[in-house]
Design a protein around this nucleic acid. Sequence first.
DNA 1: CGCAATTCAATTGCGCACAATCTAGTTACG
DNA 2: CGTAACTAGATTGTGCGCAATTGAATTGCG
Lengths: 158, 158
Amino acid sequence: MEKKAEKTMQARSGGGQMVLEANLCFAIYGAAHAFTRTYKPLLEPLGLTYPQYLVMLCLWEEDMQTVKALGERLGLDSGTLSPLLKRMEQSGYVRRERSREDERQVKIALTDEGACLEARSANVRAAIGAALGCTMDEAAALRDEVMALKARLMQLEG
Amino acid sequence: MEKKAEKTMQARSGGGQMVLEANLCFAIYGAAHAFTRTYKPLLEPLGLTYPQYLVMLCLWEEDMQTVKALGERLGLDSGTLSPLLKRMEQSGYVRRERSREDERQVKIALTDEGACLEARSANVRAAIGAALGCTMDEAAALRDEVMALKARLMQLEG
DNA sequence: CGCAATTCAATTGCGCACAATCTAGTTACG
DNA sequence: CGTAACTAGATTGTGCGCAATTGAATTGCG
């Protein structure tokens, strides 16, 4: 039952635990949470959560998208988006209207208030840029590496 | 009302949308989800979710840790860990026993079944290693970059 | 045309993640 | 000693994230 005396010593050599921190996944998992914690106080005055802000970025870029289009862009399914969009409708930032050509799809449209929010969100991008603590080129390089990793992971799913 | 004709064209130049994909945060957010989706089918036969697997990694490295110690290591608070550990107790992988020296703390201990799981999880690490699609050195380098980014983000929180 | 297969969105159920609050136990200070 | 400050963990409430199911609309095929 004294199975871990030497194992723990080895694991801790170098000033910290190894097993967990050795994992790239744990690093990304932690960085993702750190990002949302950084965004939270910036988005709170706008009445948005981070996933809701992602939806707004999509809509500011191109208004009137279907739920499916948003889901494909963001990597989210209707189980996530339906209630999220309903909350955004409650907040008054989007409208949800069933498409005339195809009654199955629901188009998400910005309200005037939602469109105005784009200007008010300028400081968010600035603050995040500053929080990154690196140049835009460095951030872009890291982003490309992470995106390539994600592509490799998704390649062997469905 | 035709406010986005040229904007959309510009945004799409280069073969894809820009606003969203330009963000490092969105890349990490997506990669984190891709990781958990990769882990899911590997951990399902073991009866673990990814956060539960992280707890097991902690405990395999050092048994009998307090909830607080696990939380600091994993970056999770008691609001997340309490119900998670209760589910792991239901699964039969850990026991929760109040400390004798300090009745406030609860020590989490592996059951025999939980300890045995370590051997059965060998294929998980192998499969993830293969799914990464890069060498261990490359993965370690990316991990260090992501950890450094996380450290910079956390630096200007509390 | 008529029925099966497909597609889109919504719903249900479960498991994180976290803020806020609560309880119990411990420590510190007068 | 006794009370105030602090700490550990649990609980409550909100919001994702996703699998599975449902229901309505559309498409495709005989």
